[in-house]
Amino acid sequence: MQLLYHIGRYFILLRQVLRRPEKASIYRKQIFLEINNIGLDSLGIVIIISIFMGAVVAIQTAYNIDSPLVPRYTVGFTTRQSLVLEFSPTIISLILAGKVGSRIASEIGTMRVTEQIDALEIMGINPAGYLILPKIVAAMLINPIIITISMFVGLFGGWIACAGGQSVTPDTYVFGIQSYFKAFEVFYALIKTVVFAFIITSVAGYQGYYTEGGALEVGKASTKAVVHASILIILFNLILTQLLLS
């Protein structure tokens, strides 16, 4: 029952979010602001995590193939596949759900409990649209770029690991990451990213928008935003993979 209630209210909110904006120029300004807040602010952590994960995947793959029958360039190939198919789109989106989701929920939740949302509404503004739509649009635009950067940086991390180790030469690694490349796999990854971006921002917006109470509830809303968005990401990861790859 509780679940149905939340799902219903979520879609009602989405409809409000998608109402025609009062003034396009203001929304455009907000989108640029949010691209900065949501996207560029997360770039640092994404780069750090991706480098290390790329390196670790490369080392582990090299460690696991000690058979002379398996060619060495498999390390590059496997690292690329892991990063492109799963690590960059899914794991980085989960990290963004934590970083961006909690930020959005607490920002909007605070505005709710301090009556700033009422203040917007009284002015004749559609608060749901004004506050949530620019965040959704910004994330759907910027996250694919962030994820693409994560892929390249992760591959670079793998290269560093190879250059620093003995088992695979960097040239073999580079040959590996270029072999059997299918553009569709990148497309699949970016589709996932865009869906996840929508989930993160809309779920966090929902949690923040319906916060009731005070500072404590804002904290709870922000935790819920992260948990619910993460679960939905995992769920939609399965659904999209089933749809697109099988």
Binding site: T110, Q116, D118, M123
Partner: peptide, 24 residues
């Protein structure tokens, strides 16, 4: 005028006062 003022935290004083004008 709300009990807790409800000013927009992310905007300066001037921007707060200009906001309804910029919107409508």
């Amino acid at each position: 005028l709300f009990q807790g003022s409800a000013l927009f935290d992310s905007m300066t004083v001037e921007e707060n006062v200009m906001f309804p004008l910029s919107m409508f």
